[in-house]
Design a protein around this nucleic acid. Structure first.
Length: 721
RNA sequence: GCGCGCAUAGCUCAGUGGUAGAGCGUUUCAUUGACAUUGAAAAGGUCCCAAGUUCGAUCCUUGGUGCGCGCACCA
C-alpha cells in the first residue's frame, strides 16, 4: 500500500527453499502425467546414475543444476517433461566400500558369507540411495521421484537378464578362456575401460635368451614364456623365424642351477624394432599383447601367477608374490650371468580404476560381448547424426574408441551385482573340450536362459546350478534409458532429448548406452549428448576427496542457499569449459536472490493489490520502450543460449537485464514517475523476469510468485514461459 | 607417441577483424526511501611469445612456450 512502510528484511533461503520444494512435490507436477495440459511433445532426460557409494559432489551439482534448468524451461514451455532419477548399484565400487567398512570391524566378506554380505550392501544402499536422492532434492532437482529406478530392482534385473540372453542368442556373447585384466585385490576380472595407468619408475632388464638379449620389466614371468617374437621385417632376426632356439634359464627345482629350454621364434608385427632389442619374450598368460601374439601363432598358455598374484607352476618360487619373485629371480639371474644390463625407465603401470592395485593380467574364463557389430552400429548413428555430441571435439576420441575397441569382458567375480543367467549342469556333467583359441580348455556344460530350468536339458536329471559370476555394472547401466521402464513411458519418452554428463564416461557409459539402445530399442537413446565441464578447484586442480580439495555443494547450500549455489556453478559454466570453482560466484548468487526478492517486494508494494499488466504502447515513455526492448532481447538471448547448452551465458544475460536494466535503471526512474502505465510495465516485467529466472533460481522466484497479488496460476513452476 | 582443450584486470572468467567487458576484490562518495547481501563513480590490462595474412589482429594462419586432459599392448 502507498505510504505503508515495507518491512526491512533480506531473503531467507533457508526458510523458503524447503517450503517451495514441498509445494512442488505436493502439486505432483514433477510427474508429467499430472500436468494440467499435455501437449504430446515429450521432453525427457535421464539422470546419469549416481553411484550409491557416496555423497553429492560438485560434478553432480553442476549436472543437476543444468539439467534442472532444461527441465524447468521445457516444462514451462509446455512440453510433457520428465526427468528420470535413479541410482546405480555400482558393483565393484559399492562392494569395495562395504568391504572397507568390514575391515574396520576386523572381518571380511568371506567370513560373513555371500548372504550376509549382500544384506550389508543392501543396508548401505538403502541409506545412501536415499541420502543422495535427498541431496538432489535439496539442490532443487525437479525429477519425478515416482519414476525412480535402481539397477537391481526386479524389473531392471529382468531387463539385464533379457539382454544377456538376447546377446547370447544373437551369437554376440561368448565364453572364453583368455588373458584378461585381473585385479588381485578386488578378486575379479575387469574390462579395458576400468584400467587406469599411472607412471612408475621401473627397471628394464636386458636378459640373455640364448642367442638373443630380451628387454623386459617383468622377469618373473619368464617361466611362462612360450615363444620369442621378432618383427618379420627385422633384418637382424628374420632368419630365426620358424626355428626354435635354446635358452638357458633358472632351474625352478633347485637354486643355483640352470636348465636349457627350447622356445620357438615367431614373426609378429607387434614386435617393435626400435624398442629394447626388438625381441619380445612372449608370455601369453600374463600379458594381453602377448596373449594376442599367442592367438595368432597358436602358442600354448602357461600360467605362472595365480588369482591372488602369487607364483604358481614355478617350482620353488610358488607362493611368492609376483613382486617378491621378481627380486629373487633377478638376483639369481645376475648370479647366473644371465642379466646383460639394467636400465631405469618409467613405465605406465596398469592399475585397477577402483582400488589402484596393480593389474595382474591372467588367464581366466570370462564372458565377452563381441563389439564389432555393435560398435559399427554406434558409429553409424554418430555419422548419420542420430547422436550429436556437444562439443563436437569429443566425437573424435569416441570414434577412435569405437573403431578400435576389443570385445568387452562383461563378467565379474563379485557378489554384488546381477548374477548371470547361466546355468551349469551339475549332475553327471559331460565335460567338453573347447578349441579354437590359444589353449584348449575344459568347460562345463551350461545353458543361457533367463529362468532356472526345471530340469537340466543337458543331463535331463540334475537341478542346475547358477554361475557365481555377476555382470559388469556398466552392462546394466548401459540399459538405463529403457530398462525397467513401463511400456507407456518407453513409447512416450524414448528416445530422450539429451544426455547430460561428464566426459570421463563417454566410452564407459555413453557409447554402451547407444549400442544397447540400437540393439534393443532399434534406435538411439538420446539425440544430443552434452558433455559439461569438470569442476576443478580454484587453482585448477582436480577436486578429490583424498586430497581434501573437494567442496561439498551441500555446505554451500547450507551457507548461501540452493539458488545461490546453482547460480554460482552455472555462472561459471561457460559452454563446456572446465570450471575453476570460485565461491565468490555463490556469494554473488546469494546477493542476486536477495535482489530479486527485494525488487519484487518493492514492485508489489508499488502496484497494489490489483495490478494490471496491460501496457498501452501508444502511451509508453522512452524508458518504457527501452526496458521492454531489453526484456525482449533478454528472453531471446536466454532461449538461444539454452538451445546450444550455454547455461552460463544465459544466466549472465538474465543477470545483466534484471539487475541493471530493470532494477538500477527502470525501477529507479519509476520512483519519479508515478503513472499507472509505469506500474503496468513494472509488474509485467516482474512477472516476465520471474519466469525467465525460474529455471535458474527456482526457489526464490517461486516464493516471490507465491506472494503475487494476482498470480495467474498456482505455481510458477508450471506458468507459461 | 597420437589427439584435444586452455592462456584476456589482483582472482574466476566473458567477448569482438576497428575505443577491451562482467562477477569478486581494491579506492572514493552516497544512508532513516525494495535491497548496505545497496547505489554512484574510480583505479587496474604489451588480451602468453614470435612470425604471417590484413588498411587494421586480442580475435584468422603457422610456429613456439606454459598449464590441464583424453587415447595408446612399447615388451
Amino acid at each position: 500500500m502507498e505510504g505503508e512502510k515495507i518491512e526491512k528484511k533480506p531473503y531467507d533461503a533457508k526458510e523458503a527453499e524447503p517450503r517451495m520444494y514441498a509445494l512442488w512435490e505436493e502439486s505432483g507436477f514433477f510427474n508429467p502425467d499430472n500436468l494440467p495440459k499435455k501437449s504430446g511433445k515429450p521432453f525427457a532426460v535421464f539422470l546419469p546414475l549416481p553411484n550409491i557409494t557416496g555423497n553429492l559432489h560438485m560434478g553432480h551439482a553442476l549436472n543437476a543444476a543444468v539439467t534442472d534448468i532444461l527441465i524447468r524451461y521445457h516444462r514451462m514451455k509446455g512440453f510433457d517433461t520428465v526427468w528420470f532419477p535413479g541410482t546405480d548399484h555400482a558393483g565393484i565400487a559399492a562392494q569395495n566400500v562395504v568391504e572397507k567398512e568390514l575391515k574396520k570391524e576386523d572381518t571380511t566378506r568371506h567370513k560373513l558369507g555371500r548372504e550376509a554380505f549382500m544384506a550389508r550392501v543392501w543396508e548401505w544402499k538403502q541409506k545412501y540411495g536415499d541420502i543422495i536422492m535427498g541431496q538432489f532434492k535439496t539442490m532443487g532437482a525437479s525429477f519425478d521421484i515416482s519414476r525412480t529406478r535402481f539397477t537391481l530392482d526386479p524389473a531392471y534385473a529382468e531387463a539385464v537378464a533379457d539382454a544377456f540372453v538376447h546377446y547370447h542368442k544373437q551369437d554376440l556373447l561368448y565364453r572364453a578362456y583368455r588373458t584378461i585384466n585381473w585385479c588381485t585385490r578386488c578378486a575379479t576380472g575387469i574390462s579395458d575401460l576400468e584400467v587406469d595407468y599411472k607412471e612408475e619408475e621401473g627397471v628394464l632388464y636386458y636378459l640373455k635368451y640364448g642367442p638373443f638379449t630380451v628387454a623386459t620389466s617383468r622377469p618373473e614371468t619368464k617361466f611362462g614364456d612360450t615363444a620369442l617374437a621378432v618383427n618379420p621385417a627385422d633384418e637382424r632376426y628374420k632368419k630365426y623365424i620358424g626355428t626354435e632356439v635354446e635358452i638357458t634359464t633358472l632351474d625352478t627345482a633347485e637354486e643355483g642351477k640352470t636348465v636349457t629350454v627350447r622356445l620357438p621364434v615367431v614373426g609378429d608385427e607387434a614386435a617393435d624394432m626400435v624398442f629394447g632389442t626388438g625381441i619380445i619374450k612372449v608370455t601369453p598368460a600374463h600379458d594381453i599383447a602377448d596373449f594376442e601374439i599367442g592367438e595368432r601363432h597358436k602358442l600354448p598358455m602357461l600360467q605362472v601367477i595365480d588369482a591372488r598374484g602369487k607364483m604358481m607352476n614355478a617350482g620353488r618360487f610358488d607362493g611368492l608374490k609376483a613382486s617378491e619373485a621378481r627380486e629373487k629371480v633377478v638376483a639369481e639371474l645376475r648370479t647366473a650371468g644371465l642379466v646383460e644390463r639394467e636400465e631405469k625407465y618409467t613405465r605406465n603401470l596398469a592399475v585397477c580404476s577402483r582400488c589402484s592395485t596393480a593389474i595382474e593380467p591372467l588367464p581366466s574364463r570370462q564372458w565377452f560381448l563381441k563389439m564389432e557389430r555393435l560398435a559399427k552400429a554406434t558409429l553409424g548413428a554418430l555419422e548419420k547424426g542420430e547422436t550429436n555430441i556437444v562439443p563436437q571435439n569429443f566425437a573424435a576420441p569416441y570414434k577412435a574408441w569405437l573403431e578400435n575397441t576389443r570385445d568387452w569382458c562383461v563378467s565379474r567375480q563379485l557378489w554384488w551385482g546381477h548374477r548371470l543367467p547361466v546355468w551349469f549342469c551339475k549332475g553327471n556333467p559331460v565335460e567338453q573340450r573347447v578349441f579354437g583359441s590359444a589353449t584348449d580348455w575344459v568347460e562345463r556344460n551350461y545353458v543361457v536362459v533367463k529362468e532356472k530350468p526345471e530340469i537340466c536339458p543337458i543331463c535331463r536329471q540334475c537341478s542346475m546350478e547358477q554361475t557365481e559370476d555377476v555382470c559388469d555394472t556398466w552392462f546394466s547401466s548401459a540399459l538405463w534409458p529403457f530398462a525397467g521402464l513401463s511400456h507407456g513411458d518407453i513409447k512416450r519418452f524414448y528416445p530422450s532429448q539429451v544426455l547430460i554428463t561428464a566426459r570421463d564416461i563417454i566410452n564407459l557409459w555413453v557409447g554402451r548406452m547407444v549400442f544397447s539402445g540400437l540393439e534393443f530399442m532399434k534406435g538411439v537413446p538420446f539425440k544430443d549428448v552434452f558433455i559439461h565441464g569438470t569442476v576443478l578447484t580454484k587453482d585448477g586442480k582436480r577436486m578429490s576427496k583424498s586430497l581434501g580439495t573437494g567442496i561439498d555443494p551441500l555446505t554451500l547450500v547450507e551457507k548461501y542457499g540452493a539458488d545461490a549455489t546453482r547460480f554460482g556453478i552455472v555462472w561459471q559454466a561457460m559452454g563446456t569449459q572446465d570450471i575453476r570453482f570460485d565461491e565468490a560466484a555463490v556469494v554473488a548468487g546469494r546477493k542476486f536472490a536477495n535482489k530479486i526478492y527485494n525488487a519484487a517486494r518493492f514492485v508489489m508494494g508499488r502496484v497494489g493489490t490489483a495490478p494490471s499488466v496491460q501496457i498501452d504502447m501508444s502511451k509508453a515513455s522512452a524508458a518504457d520502450v527501452l526496458v521492454l526492448g531489453r526484456a525482449d532481447e533478454t528472453k531471446k538471448a536466454v532461449e538461444a543460449h539454452l538451445t546450444v547448452y550455454e547455461f552460463g551465458q544465459a544466466l549472465h544475460a538474465l543477470y545483466d537485464f534484471f539487475w541493471h536494466d530493470y532494477c538500477d535503471v527502470y525501477i529507479e526512474e519509476a520512483k519519479n514517475s508515478p503513472s499507472s502505465e509505469t506500474d503496468a510495465v513494472l509488474y509485467a516485467l516482474l512477472i516476465g523476469s520471474l519466469k525467465l529466472l525460474h529455471p535458474f533460481m527456482p526457489f526464490v522466484t517461486e516464493s516471490v510468485w507465491q506472494e503475487l497479488p494476482n498470480k495467474e496460476k498456482s505455481l510458477l513452476m508450471v506458468a507459461e514461459w
